[in-house]
Design a protein around this nucleic acid. Structure first.
Lengths: 163, 163
DNA sequence: TGACTTTCGTTGCGATTGCAACGATAACAA
DNA sequence: TTGTTATCGTTGCAATCGCAACGAAAGTCA
C-alpha cells in the first residue's frame, strides 16, 4: 500500500496543529493565571484596545471567533466588569462594546506577559527566519484562499498585517 | 498605555492558531466527506498504518491526543469496523489495537487526498522556504522545551522527524 | 405603506473537550 | 506472602464547542 511510509510527525497540517496548540496553551497559562480569561476573552479584550464601541459582528470578523463565541465571551467579560455593553442609539440591533478601566488594567497585566512570550519565541530566530516564516504562513493562506473547499479567511487577517 | 498599538493579526501565536485551524479544517473536510472521521480518528488510523497491535497509551504519546480522546476515538473506530481491539495476553491491562481491512481501505481513500492537500500547500513554496519553515517550527518547539510553564512535548514528535 | 429580505445579537442543543477520578491489573518491596 | 505504588484503559462531569435557528430591528422596493 502506498501510504505505508506516511509519517504523521512530518505531515505539515499535523506539525502546525501541534505547534500552534502548544503555543496557545503556553499563552493561556498567563491569561488564566492573571485574570482567569479564556482565549476568546483575551482576543476580544485585545481587539477593544484598538477599537472602541464595536459590535459583536465586528469583533467576530476581526479575531477569528464565530459570533456565538464572541457574544458569550463579551457576556462573561461584562459580568467580570472588564467591558461595557450598551445599545447603539442609531441602530437598535447593534451593541457598542468598549473597555472599562478594569479591562484596561487587566490588559496592562497580560499584554506584557504575552509580548514577552512572543519575544522569547522569536529570539531563537534570525531576522531572516522570522521574515521567511511569516511570508510562508501568508503563502499558505494564499493557497487556501484559492481552494473552494477551504473556509474563507477573515478580511481583517489579510489587512491587519499592514500596520 | 504601552500596548495601544498591539496588533493581534501580527501576533505570532494568533497567526499560528488561525493558519493551523484553517489547514485542519480543510483536511477535516476530506476525513468527513470520505468516511465520517474526526481528527482524532484520522490520527489514530494513520498511526496504526505503521504500528500494529499498539496500546491506547502508545497512540496517546505519539499523536498528541490525550488518553480519553484516543480511547473514545478507538471505540468509535471499532464500532465502525475500521479497527480491531483485543486484550493483550501478557498484560491484561493492555489492549492491542490494529487496522482491519476496512480500516486500511479507508486510509487508502483518505491518505492520497491528505497528501494532495499537503502537496498543494507546499507547492507554493521554494525548497528553501519549506526547509526554513520546518526548521523554524522546530526551533520554536525548542524554546518551549526550555520553558517550565509550557506543556512538555510528546517524544514521538521529536523523534518522528527522523524517518 | 406593507410585504420581503437582510442583518443584528442571542440562545438551544447535541456533540466534543479536558481533566480528574475510577476499577482493574501489574510491579515492587518488605 | 502481603501491603504499597504505578500504570492500564475507561468513564463522569462540567464546560465549551460549532452550527442552526431564533426574535428583533433595519433595509429594500413595488
Amino acid at each position: 500500500m502506498a501510504g505505508k511510509n506516511f509519517n504523521l510527525s512530518a505531515f505539515l497540517p499535523y506539525r502546525l496543529a501541534v505547534l500552534s496548540e502548544r503555543v496557545s496553551r503556553r499563552l493561556a497559562v498567563e491569561y488564566e493565571r492573571l485574570h482567569g480569561l479564556s482565549v476568546a476573552e483575551w482576543r476580544v479584550l485585545v481587539h477593544l484596545l484598538r477599537h472602541e464601541k464595536v459590535s459583536v459582528r465586528e469583533i467576530h470578523t476581526c479575531v477569528n471567533l464565530d459570533k456565538p463565541r464572541v457574544s458569550r465571551a463579551v457576556a462573561r467579560l461584562e459580568a467580570a466588569g472588564f467591558v461595557d455593553k450598551i445599545q447603539d442609539t442609531a441602530d437598535a440591533r447593534l451593541v457598542a462594546i468598549s473597555l472599562t478601566e478594569k479591562g484596561l488594567a487587566a490588559l496592562g497585566d497580560i499584554l506584557p506577559e504575552a509580548q514577552t512570550i512572543e519575544a522569547h519565541l522569536l529570539a531563537c530566530l534570525s531576522p531572516r527566519e522570522v521574515q521567511s516564516f511569516f511570508t510562508v504562513m501568508e503563502k499558505l493562506h494564499g493557497v487556501l484562499d484559492g481552494d473552494p473547499k477551504a473556509r474563507p479567511r477573515m478580511p481583517a487577517d489579510v489587512d491587519g498585517l499592514r500596520d
